[in-house]
Amino acid sequence: MWDLGMTIEVETPAVGGLELVVARLAEWQVDGGAVQLHPGDLGWFWRYGAEQTAAAVRTWARDGELLAVGMLDEPDLLRVAIAPGAQEDEELARRIAADVADPAAGVLVEGKVYLETPNDSRVRDLLFVAGWELDDPWQPLERDLAEPVEDSGLAVEIVTAETAAVRVGVQRASFDGSTFSEERWHAMAGGTPYARARCLIGRDAAGEAVGAITVWSAGKGRPGLIEPLGVHRNHRGHGYGRAMTLAGAAALRELGASRAQVLTPCFNEGAIATYRSAGFELLPQRRDQYRKA
């Protein structure tokens, strides 16, 4: 379908190659740039272990230079970040489009599949021409961290190996069907992205753990990510979501982040309202593309 050159190579990196992948993803996070796959997304996936994380990653490179990184959130969903200077690179776009369209390339499975790429990337244009369609919208939000963040009103503590069980308990009580565990927390905390991350739990006046958040920095002066935020199902309706969001934003500022970013489905009006109440502003919506089965 696409006339391809031979200079772009796609591969699945070895575990040892993940450090470079994380470094490049961090460099691609820029103020005012596309909201796209963040090193924190890899960091949260790392709860499944380094080997499974590496197996979920796809990279596209020219002459050894990484131009795009994809992560399989699911076997049928690939999230792709593209280097800021390569968003309109025709050869790269054609190679990515060809690889995601061909199950034999080992990037996406057969049948109905989904692809997330930056809104203005050339690859989106090519896939629309090939018949791919738009999926349901997602809402990115961000808060500028130039000024100090107001106090959350909660007793907030940084999660350590000794309090990982509490963090896990809040996560499992916040998301139905969660499979988070202490083992997975330790795997995540041992991953490369977690060196610039922070896990927090918030406690109410009685000392009960009511909420938790994990935030990921991409380095000083770059946007950081919230992934995930949760409020214990037994403690909802008290403003703890806003409080934990403020705590997470403050932690990102301490880590040197320029902005705090988060992404949530547009149908999740409660989450959007929570982030707005914590000073986050709406960014242009994002929509994955999908290929019918």
Results as ranks from 00 to 15, higher is better:
L4G: 12
E11L: 12
E11S: 14
L25A: 01
Q29N: 04
G32V: 11
G32A: 14
G33A: 10
Q36K: 11
P39H: 06
G40N: 00
W44H: 13
W46T: 05
Y48L: 14
G49R: 05
Q52R: 12
V57D: 02
L67D: 02
V69I: 15
L72E: 08
D73R: 13
L77R: 08
L78W: 13
A81R: 00
A81G: 09
P84M: 10
R94V: 03
L108S: 00
T117H: 06
S121F: 01
L126D: 06
F128A: 14
E133N: 09
E133M: 15
L134A: 05
P137T: 03
Q139G: 13
R143Q: 13
P148K: 09
D151Q: 13
A155M: 11
V159I: 06
V166L: 13
F175P: 09
D176T: 14
G177L: 06
S178F: 00
T179N: 11
F180G: 02
W185K: 00
P193N: 05
A197S: 06
I201V: 14
G202L: 07
E208H: 14
E208W: 10
I213P: 02
A218I: 07
R222M: 09
L229F: 00
R233W: 12
R233P: 09
N234P: 00
N234C: 11
R242L: 09
A243L: 05
T245A: 14
L246F: 09
A247G: 00
V262W: 02
G270K: 14
T274C: 15
S277N: 04
G279N: 03
E281W: 07
R286D: 10
K292M: 11
